[in-house]
Design a binder for these strands. Structure first.
Lengths: 337, 337
DNA sequence: CGTGGATTTGCATAGGTGTGCAAAATCAGG
DNA sequence: CCTGATTTTGCACACCTATGCAAATCCACG
């Protein structure tokens, strides 16, 4: 393995100083003449600036740390893929961390520490919370953090979510308009803002319409829990279920049809949340609230890059509205296409 | 933002030299006494070694570059999650790159270049090929490459796949034993080794059993293509379909049931490949050949780490066998549970 | 206590780049 | 051609750690 070619080599060949080479490649001022000479020499030698050395001195790595909890829910791979792509376009790269099963605070701590070690320029937490102590540490290190698809009131952290309360409300309206009077709710994890907000919006709107849920069970965004919740609610005779995300909704539908022998939407209407690609598959054909992933990702990247480039920028809280996508898993009210 | 605390600061406080600090943190020899003093001082100051400076001098970044083409197929998020976890356990981190839609050679080139720029210690290509020129460049840079779930004959690259030929053969045996005599095949992309191998094993075994496929259509690992292929094969009156991967199989099943009104497995048996988690969902209940992701990932990591730590290590080609998982989407032969 | 060997320690330098500062070069205008 | 303003260039140093080498320290044994 031959030694790396450095800026000195290029400088020697081009007949200029090392600083000149550096300036050409970091976009600082340089005359046309030297710039040409340098580029030509670099080309000939196959020179590429050493990213590590550059990061060491500038203190900016152009790497984004991304923590993602659970890729089993297809919403996140989709988001991850988009993140990676958008960051690449912005000239950043994505260092991915996954949280172990029992996501303890110690684990988050260790991961954040490793990110700081790598001097990431920014952090995206997808569906992961951040303790105040850690948030403070990132703040102190001057590393901006954006929460994706999770809010954290009073944390002062930037966050991007969909309009979860509104989404929950839309489902309430839709189900009531569809004539349902025994509505149950397999809630998203109530320890997360998304779960709580969807539930709150849903319950509040139901109340405004003079209804009350027959039952609310926390499905914890988990397959097995969702099935358990379904059993409880079916026992109470529901005729419609609002499920906290699509991932659980699939489990719920499978259980309703296969284990309980119920027809969808004949016996029970089911509505989900996310509009994951799979929701459109014929086997589920799930009516669901769309989370506009593309726009959410773009907003997250924009907020992060903004904070990176302008340290004084404020941490924004962004909510993006998404439509209810009508499919076949829930009875459609008269008068709607 | 306060200046970073360096090894000099720690040295001063502990009353030793900077090299002593370095040695303590890089695990070199140091007496108990100094080691204790250094650790204490480091703790008090909140010192952490600067990874960038370390990488710059050692030439090892402890970062693995990972290229993944398409996270829409749930096989890959699953693998990615495991990779990230296993690498973390080994003290490496994962820099993720995604390939744009029309994965041209130029794109791969650019991505590899960026990885080399970041001086990754190794590269995993998940379901992505590598031109000879690029392979040579990695070789020259001393960066080992392992292909995951893709082979490339004659490339001299390390690769980990499942036993695809054998898997295809198993399906052939299973379908014939089930009494099917009009078997069709929605093949995996014939431009990939996995697609070709599965097809070859399948076709060869069929021939040995005195049968021939009613038709073979390349589904290109794509939903729409798989549906098109299904139409073609159904028109030829198939009573069983071997589909190149689960991702396509779901599309095929949806199309068979919803659009064509056929019963599975009553009218048509369907067998997939991968055993993605979703294959076990009641809505599909897909009989499929399991790719043992866990073992494949571990083998890939082991091969890579081995090559990183011992530059003279040979590039191994690993094939891991996986069982046929019997579920309800295909008629089960007499005498099998 | 003396001596040889093993271990530990400090010095100094390398790794490759960005950047402040002053000197040099360029340019415009009279 | 001269002068002052502006741009370009080179020098030297900073960024922070790892490591070869020689000096120093330690240990055990006679």
């Amino acid at each position: 393995m031959t030694r790396r070619v450095t800026s000195f080599d290029v400088a020697a060949r081009a007949g200029v100083s090392q600083s000149a080479v550096s300036r050409v490649f970091s976009g600082a001022s340089a005359s046309k003449a030297t710039s040409d000479k340098v580029r030509e020499a670099a080309e000939a030698l196959g020179y590429r600036p050493n990213v590590l050395a550059r990061s060491l001195i500038t203190g900016r790595s152009r790497i984004i740390g991304m923590v993602v909890a659970y890729l089993g829910n297809p919403f996140y791979p989709d988001a991850l893929e988009r993140f990676s792509r958008v960051f690449q376009d912005e000239g950043y790269h994505t260092l991915v961390f996954t949280l172990p099963e029992g996501a303890g605070d110690t684990d988050t701590d260790r991961i954040i520490q490793q990110m700081l070690d790598h001097q990431v320029d920014g952090i995206v937490l997808a569906s992961v919370g951040l303790g105040d102590a850690l948030a403070a540490r990132c703040e102190a290190a001057g590393i901006p953090v954006v929460l994706f698809n999770r809010g954290q009131a009073g944390s002062g952290l930037a966050q991007v979510t969909s309009a979860n309360r509104l989404g929950g409300a839309k489902v309430a309206e839709f189900l009531v308009a569809g004539g349902h009077r025994r509505i149950g709710h397999v809630a998203g994890w109530q320890g997360s803002s998304t779960g709580r907000d969807r539930t709150e919006g849903f319950v509040a709107r139901l109340a405004e319409l003079g209804q009350e849920a027959v039952g609310i069970e926390d499905g914890r965004y988990d397959h097995a829990e969702a099935v358990r919740a379904t059993d409880v609610l079916v026992a109470r005779g529901v005729d419609a279920l609002f499920v906290g995300n699509d991932h659980m909704a699939f489990a719920v539908m499978d259980h309703l049809r296969s284990a309980l022998g119920l027809k969808i939407p004949g016996d029970v209407s089911v509505v989900g949340y996310d509009d994951v690609p799979m929701a459109g598959f014929a086997a589920y054909d799930l009516t669901t609230v769309r989370q506009p992933v593309g726009r959410m990702v773009k907003a997250t990247v924009a907020a992060l890059v903004n904070q990176i480039e302008d340290k004084s920028a404020q941490a924004e809280v962004t909510e993006i509205d998404g439509p209810l996508i009508l499919r076949g898993s829930a009875r459609i009210p008269e008068g709607l296409a």
